[in-house]
Design a protein around this nucleic acid. Structure first.
Lengths: 267, 267
DNA sequence: TGCTAAATCTCGAAC
DNA sequence: GTTCGAGGTTTAGCA
């Protein structure tokens, strides 16, 4: 065992069962994040059931009650528990067992280690803010601040309006005074988007009696949807996320470098 | 630096930039999984854009080209790259920069470390098979092997039949000889399931001329869908995942202990 | 707490 | 490779 008080980082190599158990309990009690490399099996009971035999994996226990079991391949953890789970550490013969569960929904994952190669525990300080931009929400906001991105003479009346079957992204009036419902998709709009828009319009027609114009606003329309769109009397318009991004940045005052050209690995 | 050849586990504590770079390159070259605990910032350009300032996090690099950046809280990584990504490690002044990207879709994530507290690299052996049971697939299989779980006198004709708008889960003939289309949902069936089933039936009606019976088979029907269901002339039947699970286990010959009662943390 | 819609969704299978 | 459907989806935003 090695202790590095400067970094608050505790590293245990091939710890005994007693040492590992103590480190697990103390690390969680102190609000630390713990990483285990070892050989374990996993069982899950809850929303479904799963079983995974013994193998060498990485386990992360977070201070907020999240647990992750990662195999040496793949993006997603093979088993996990969401934040808010309750941990329980115990010895079972020559093995270490970690239970993590919650009551709603009722579920529990059980890790059984027959070997722990490395156990690391550390308090992590991370207050940085994460910002992600140019999503559907941003496109809508860009249109609110610059309606001409949609169409000249267009005016936004309301956004995120609740209708019986969901939420309409944007409602406005076009230059000819027509009531216009806009359904926004960031990527390709598919059959489901078309049907969704149709339902929205039907719901609104129920309220007033006037005709309503329906427009899908997306970066593209999936193949085979054109016919459905036309048969329902709807329109499609292409949205340029780049221009929306620029509009947003202009509004937010931030600078913008697109540099789309020399993105890729320039190593 | 400590080398444990028995376990194939390399542990570097507060390594110099040169040592860290060398370890990263050699670890990936040898097909090892690498974990880094340190202080870093993250930038992502691609399907969206994101920015995350400096903070203490856990980074996992997998031999299949997956990369994960985990903050001390939450289930999901704050940034990542999927398997198949290309890694690039380099020095930039007193910092270490890791780029991970791919060309389709064109995207890249950049990690900039101003401190590395711990770097661990190890080859992980994990050949175990992961099995997850009682999903939609299993319910369908349970019905194929025990059609009376659906209805007495029911006969399965085909499963996973392709129709213009997707795949029908099950098609069969009921005791009165009616052509029956079954849409299976593991949990609550919602409005979308009802609409999907209607589309399937419409597609099948196009083929033959006979009337088709449509049934939603799920553990429940979402509130407000009953009306839609009836107006479309469809039915809802409750499925018991537990009985399906038992049917599957019977068929697979395995034993079964449900022990639903004393699941929860019995610590 | 529960529901609805989005996601850099991921993952796997079929075409 | 692309597309489509499912997921222990997870996550964020509101009623």
């Amino acid at each position: 065992m090695r202790l590095y008080p400067d970094l608050g980082l505790k590293v245990f190599q091939a710890p005994s069962i007693g040492v590992a158990l103590e480190a697990l309990k103390e690390g969680f009690r102190k609000g630390e994040l713990t990483i285990i490399i070892g050989r374990l099996s996993v069982d899950y009971h809850g929303r479904a059931r799963s079983k995974l035999g013994f193998g060498e994996r990485v386990v992360i226990l977070k201070p907020d009650g999240a647990l992750l079991v990662h195999r040496p391949h793949g993006h997603s953890p093979v088993n996990w528990q969401p934040p808010g789970s309750i941990f329980d550490f115990k010895r079972l013969g020559e093995k270490i067992v970690i239970n993590a569960g919650r009551s709603n929904p009722l579920e529990k994952v059980t890790l059984t280690f027959d070997r722990i190669d490395l156990l690391v525990s550390s308090r992590l300080r991370d207050d940085a803010e994460f910002s992600l931009y140019v999503d559907e929400h941003d496109i809508r906001d860009a249109l609110v601040s610059e309606p001409e991105l949609f169409e000249e003479g267009f005016h936004v009346v309301t956004k995120e309006k609740r209708v019986p079957s969901g939420f309409v992204d944007l409602i406005g009036v076009d230059r000819e005074g027509r009531f216009t419902v806009i359904e926004i998709k960031k990527g390709l709009a598919g059959r489901d988007s078309v049907i969704q828009l149709k339902r929205y319009i039907d719901g609104l027609k129920g309220e007033g009696g006037a005709a309503v114009r329906g427009v899908i606003l997306a970066s593209g329309l999936a193949r085979g949807c054109q016919g459905l769109l036309e048969s329902l009397g709807l329109e499609f318009k292409r949205v340029d996320p780049r221009r929306c991004y620029e509009a947003l940045m202009k509004r937010r005052g931030g600078g913008l470098q697109l540099e789309l050209s020399r993105w890729f690995i320039s190593s």
